[in-house]
Nucleic acid binder design. Structure first.
Lengths: 159, 159
DNA sequence: AAGCTTGGTGTTATAACATATCAAGCAGAA
DNA sequence: TTCTGCTTGATATGTTATAACACCAAGCTT
């Protein structure tokens, strides 16, 4: 059920599916899925890794789709805002959402060696953090959960 | 038990206690608790908020303790490494540890309005993320848990 | 004491990440 | 058509972080 990266899959297919889903959602919600936005999502889906804004920008730039930072950041903001992409705070980087079809609190496993990112979900507000929040009167709006470590591929290689 | 900020307390006392504990731990572990390192910790304890490296640097600089970024970053690295300070990834900022006397996985409640930070603990590896990690063979080394929202003080003020 | 090693600090420079601002284009509604 | 709102282009700048190298002080060796 919950997708946990770190394994083989039909990549071309998953890229196409995700783009089609994004298309559909944007149509349904009257959002403008412009060429730049679409291409940025596609780049992230293709790489299947966390990428910095400037990495993305350099791809765009090579393709003549704009060469200044705001181009990338604006597209990323749109994609994050609408749940197509998540920001990885630890890395100041971005990765395509693995479950774009439903709302969720994402949680990530991030390989410190190869930067592969697996996304799963969490319902943290019911745990200890949620308890702390409610006893102190804190109103949680967003939760970041990111685990750093070594993915199966890299456990042998790196210390 | 778990300290959840957002309330009054004897601040001078807590600063002194924390510094004394840091002193003791460094002595015990033969770590060099140099003036810059000590002062950076003190600054963070005094403010009791998340502070950026450059905020800290400007205080240091005003006191003639070095004016270049590496001065602040080196001290912060030391303090983070040894558990006296935590880095808040969402904010690219740092905050003094609220439970420096024992090892723990910190979790934070961060007010997006006033930047107050409350630290609590979590044992996340037993939850859904831990399960995802073990089924996929991912080796978790570090976990970041940060909730953003509004603290009790700011709930009335800000939208 | 001279020489060596280790770890901290001072300093310069630069890399990496992100946003403010203003002008121009373009699509859909009135 | 004209207005309006969103998107894009472009310039400039702000913010966060690190590389690299020189210097110095403490502790250890011979």
């Amino acid at each position: 059920m919950s997708t946990v990266g770190f394994r083989q899959h039909d990549h071309t297919h998953c890229v196409h599916t995700a783009l089609a889903q994004a298309d559909a959602k944007c149509k349904a919600q009257r959002l403008q899925f412009t060429p730049v936005r679409r291409r940025v999502l596609e780049i992230l889906l293709e790489k299947h890794r966390a990428m910095g804004a400037y990495d993305i920008l350099s791809v765009l730039s090579a393709e003549g789709m704009g060469s200044q930072p705001p181009v990338a950041y604006r597209a990323l903001d749109f994609l994050v805002q609408n749940g197509f992409v998540h920001r990885i705070e630890q890395l100041n980087a971005y990765t395509a959402c693995a479950h774009p079809t439903h709302d969720h609190i994402p949680a990530f496993l991030i390989c410190r060696s190869c930067k592969a990112v697996a996304e799963t979900e969490t319902e943290l507000t019911q745990g200890r953090l949620g308890a702390a929040a409610s006893t102190s009167g804190f109103q949680i709006e967003r939760v970041v959960v990111e685990a750093e470590g070594l993915c199966p591929e890299c456990i042998g290689d790196q210390p």
